[in-house]
Design a protein around this nucleic acid. Structure first.
Length: 546
RNA sequence: GCCCUCGUAGCUCAGUGGAUAGAGCAUCGGCCUCCGGAGCCGUGAGCGCAGGUUCGAAUCCUGCCGAGGGCGCCA
């Protein structure tokens, strides 16, 4: 599918060499935003004019005459433009090859790449304390982490989805105490968990149950359940306690000691993290003999490095200050700091229309993720979380996310898929089944709307690779919305009926294949987002007979 | 005070160093008997401020202003 880039690049490189220049390793070639600037544009002359000892426009003119001697395939016209760009105008024929390639790939292959080259990558996300339900903020990290994992799989990584359970330490004990207090009809002690869910769960708890064990299971089940609603399943639920039980924690502490990066002071054990870029040294073992939070987490990350080549952590914004010390610790253990990538999700503000949603019915000062999913549905929840870059704070409007209308991006995108399914069904009803693609005359697809659709399909794979590199699944979502938009424009246009009195059977065939390619793109994009591609957006009486 | 993220259209947000910065909603003006109904087409309006690097900066660097978050022998 990228063959057009290779051909144009090769032609440009050849022309540069003929001019006695050493072309850069990667020749700039892009699809200009402005269609008047052609289908493809190269900055080669701008980038090498200094080397050539002439001005960019002069150089571009010379390169153009070289290119004219052996015009690359599909090129209908080339021109010098602006400060020295070389613009290529192509026949629509280059896109017909794209259509064939998309269809040959199918939904399971379209857009895949080998960015990861089979490297093992561990994506850790959610990692919430097993002391209560997940809230809306967790939802953003959960959906982001899951979509990122899917994206990385698509980019040729071997992916492990993992979450860390903070199942030891004071938080757990506080939680158990709070449950016990509520079970006894008392208010939890100062600093305890005050949410309504504690009251509810204490009521469920059998009288003879151990609040710690029972509460742990109850919270984890709740988390697993709500994640399941969103289609999120972890390969590994990693217990912090297991690091103590297995001796892994002591071993990693010993390794740090052996490496000479530990010192003792004021009755505490410290990591000399300032040697590795941290702004202060960190306590690993407190003067009372207890570990800090950091210590088991170091052992945990060391364990993950034993199972993967690269680590990605998805953390909430409130943990960002923790990054330098964890990177320092990994470097102190001999790992590459670049192999630990921490992605930080900024805060989510929940709205319902114009009104800010601050309180959950049950959880005290947070809104439960479960409430969000139940109000807007799994697909819309995922899609909405994924609309924006995690670097920006997000305003999540429950009302808008739940709306059944084209204003809602998830509905809009899924609707494109449903429309395609329906058109194909109607075509079949009119006696049109797709012929073999080799027998279809794709060169009939030259309408502006058709060309736009094909361009969107062309750009998908490149965009997915960029998204994978940038760890930015929201870009895939942006792309699939664009594809849906291109389809809706095509669909709505009165010149582009697939089946109709004014449409030749040959054109119907070509358009059916265009629909199939579009369907593949939509399914691939929606799948990467973890969102369904429904065949219909609603049912009426006649449909329900089936 | 130091660190992180953000600051783009009236609003919510995109934008891999490229040319005239995009989309949705809202405004205004057209269109829609057709495959499926919540549409389609067009219009106006913007890169927080000041420097710097570059042939070229919303993008990279520095400073300032503003918003949010973080700076524990808490987790």
């Amino acid at each position: 599918m990228q063959v057009i880039i290779e051909e144009l690049t090769a032609a440009l490189r050849k022309a540069a060499k003929e001019e006695g220049l050493t072309p850069p390793d990667t020749i700039g070639l892009e699809q200009p935003a402005n269609r008047e600037h052609g289908d493809w544009s190269s900055n080669l002359a701008l980038a090498t004019s200094k080397q050539a000892g002439t001005n960019p426009r002069e150089l571009a003119t010379r390169l153009l005459s070289r290119l004219e001697e052996q015009r690359p395939a599909h090129v209908s016209r080339m021109e010098l433009a602006g400060p020295g760009f070389i613009n290529f105008h192509l026949d629509a024929s280059w896109l017909h090859g794209v259509l064939r390639a998309v269809v040959a790939d199918g939904v399971d292959t379209y857009g895949r790449n080998q960015l990861g080259a089979g490297r093992r990558i561990n994506v850790e996300f959610v990692s919430a304390n097993p002391t209560g339900p997940l809230h809306a903020g967790h939802g953003r990290g959960a959906v982001y982490g899951d979509a990122l994992a899917s994206l990385l799989e698509w980019c040729g990584y071997g992916v492990t989805r993992e979450t860390y359970i903070n199942d030891r330490g004071v938080q757990m004990q506080t939680y158990a105490n709070s449950l016990a207090a509520r079970a006894a009809g008392e208010t939890p002690a100062e600093g305890g968990y005050m949410g309504q869910y504690i009251v509810d769960w204490a009521r469920e708890m059998p009288a003879d149950a151990d609040p710690l064990d029972w509460g742990y299971t109850r919270a984890l089940d709740d988390q697993r359940d709500v994640l399941g609603l969103l289609g999120i399943e972890f390969d590994v639920w990693f217990s912090e306690q297991s690091l103590v039980d297995s001796g892994a924690l002591d071993r990693s502490l010993q390794t740090l000691r052996d490496r000479g990066v530990i010192f003792e002071s004021e009755d505490a054990v410290w990591l000399r993290s300032t040697d590795y870029g941290d702004d202060k040294d960190r306590v690993l073992v407190k003067s009372d003999g207890e570990y800090t939070y950091l210590t088991p987490d170091i052992a945990y990350h060391a364990d993950k490095f034993g199972r993967a080549d690269e680590l990605v952590n998805v953390w909430g914004a409130d943990h960002h200050g923790y990054i330098p010390r964890m990177k320092a610790a990994m470097e102190a253990l001999g790992h590459n700091r670049e192999d630990l990538d921490v992605q930080v999700t900024q805060l989510v503000r929940l709205m319902r229309g114009d009104e800010e949603v601050k309180l959950s019915k049950r959880a005290g000062d947070i809104v439960e993720l479960r409430d969000v999913v139940e109000e807007v549905g799994p697909d819309a929840t995922r899609f909405t979380y994924l609309l924006q870059s995690i670097d920006s704070q997000q305003t999540f409007d429950l009302e808008a996310a739940a709306a059944q209308g084209m204003d809602n991006p998830v509905f809009y995108t899924q609707m494109a898929h449903a429309r395609i399914i329906n058109i194909v069904k109607k075509a079949a009803g009119a006696g049109f089944e797709r012929v073999d693609i080799a027998d279809a005359n794709l060169s009939l697809l030259t309408h502006e709307r058709e060309v736009e659709l094909l361009r969107a399909l062309f750009s998908g794979p490149g965009l997915i690779e960029v998204a994978g590199r940038e760890r930015a699944p929201h870009r895939v979502v942006g792309w699939v919305r664009e594809l849906a938009g291109a389809f809706h424009s095509f669909y709505q246009n009165n010149d582009c009926y697939v089946v109709g009195d004014n449409v030749s059977p040959e054109l119907t065939q070509a358009r059916l294949w265009l629909l199939e390619a579009t369907r593949i793109g939509l399914v691939a994009g929606l799948t990467l987002a973890g969102v369904s591609a429904p065949d219909a957006m609603w049912h009426d009486e006649t449909d329900e007979d089936e």
